[in-house]
Nucleic acid binder design. Structure first.
Lengths: 237, 237
DNA sequence: AAGCGTCGGCACGCTAGCGTACATAACGCT
DNA sequence: AGCGTTATGTACGCTAGCGTGCCGACGCTT
């Protein structure tokens, strides 16, 4: 298992739905473009829409205070933003920040909840997705606590690469520092080490993944655990 | 807000249910005694039962390897073990360890899933509970990353006291070290500091909370955030 | 071509917490 | 009373990462 994602350019929670469900969904949704840095939701804000990224992806971030924040989950085309609504809660638990620009399917929150009533297959799949997210949140808690910056950075780059679908990532050290909840200088050191080993190359805001397998080896097992979890719980059908 | 829990000696997810739902539930469940140290479930094991603690409580633990483990959630009489089944998943995401001996209501996993079909109020309440747990998992991730041992220990003691319902806790430094994912010696130092300040007293496996308010002040805001979240999402009705 | 803002390299002293190891102290048995 | 077991105190050197600040380099703008 080297990636969460299989290739199709569609949201993977929506592929291979029964015809009826697919049509019902498509009738209710529209396509929107998300741009980098856009904040889709602040914590405790009310959901107006649910998003199913196609080639965009979204970071879910815990904000403790202005200085302290930490990404705890990502939603790309393997996932969604707004899973709380599946539980009947219309409040956002986390800060949702667009981390990779691109398109997403969007559906009105109310319409989405209505829709779920008549789409059992989708509904069940989204419940599985919630389970996956919960398990990943738990793993992240341990990962952030036990693993070192370099391992975590490697994992993060891999996860991002999977969702971005390219080996060129537009990221500054500053940004990575916020995601991992560490100093900018800490990222610089880790990045230098990884560049020296030939795993990545970077320059002024661009990181290129050179050696994916090497990166996987440099990352903590949390990455492959995540992939395995996806594969098991949400196989691309 | 000084505690998650209001007083009644019953599981709070089950109080004030409609008569019909309550009866249906009670008909399907029985009462069991849980003893300290009992492992109710290993990760990826299949649920056979769901537990609603009455005066017992359960730690949910991420195990990375034998050396590295970390408690990420607790289930006492404010919660349950087996919420994944509400999502239709019969696999345990985490290690479940009985941390406080006592009784719990237990219900067969299959019967529980059947029951949910005819108990909409309960079902909705349990979905809210899942939301709360998710948000707490996310908070925990940040807390374990950013906050220092002493703050985390204070938080942990408060959470435990709420669920144990007594100010005498039977806990060794060793055990606390496992829960927080730190060295035993690290706990000893933090505990000494807290004892010196008159917040707690302890001796050979017993910790007594002397100054609850002082402890709250010594803890990170994560504690009161948790309490506030409960109060908001699962008010004792 | 010059200037400016952003990005990355680097260095300083500092702290929290680690791994380890050993000593003492309390308790529970027999 | 003596013994082993378990819990706690403490000390050592070590590491990762912190906060900060400064400098140089790149690249965009004008």
């Amino acid at each position: 298992m080297t990636s969460i994602l299989n290739v199709p350019a569609a949201n993977q929670l929506l592929v291979e739905l029964p015809e009826v469900e697919r049509n019902a969904f498509m009738a209710a949704c529209d396509t929107v473009e998300l741009s980098f840095g856009e904040v889709l939701l602040q914590p405790t804000e009310t959901f107006t829409h649910v998003y199913f990224p196609i080639d965009s992806f979204i970071s879910l971030i815990v904000v403790i205070d202005t200085e302290k924040q930490l990404e705890v989950a990502m939603a790309g085309r393997e996932g969604m933003l707004g899973s709380s609504l599946v539980l009947g809660i219309d409040e956002a638990p986390l800060l949702a920040l667009v981390q990779g620009a691109g398109s997403a399917l969007r559906i009105d929150a109310g319409a989405f909840q209505q829709l779920l009533l008549s789409t059992p297959v989708l509904h069940q799949r989204l419940k599985r997705y919630i389970y996956v997210v919960m398990k990943q949140l738990a793993t992240s808690a341990a990962c952030n606590h036990f693993h070192r910056i370099e391992e975590r950075l490697a994992r993060w780059l891999l996860m991002t690469q999977d969702r971005a679908g390219t080996d060129q990532l537009n990221l500054t050290h500053e940004f990575l520092a916020m995601m991992l909840g560490v100093r900018r200088a800490g990222i610089t050191l880790a990045a230098i080490a990884m560049q020296t080993r030939g795993l990545i190359r970077y320059q002024r805001g661009t990181i290129t993944v050179l050696d994916r397998l090497g990166l996987i080896e440099a990352s903590c097992e949390c990455y492959s655990d995540d992939c395995a979890l996806y594969a098991k719980m949400l196989p691309v059908l």
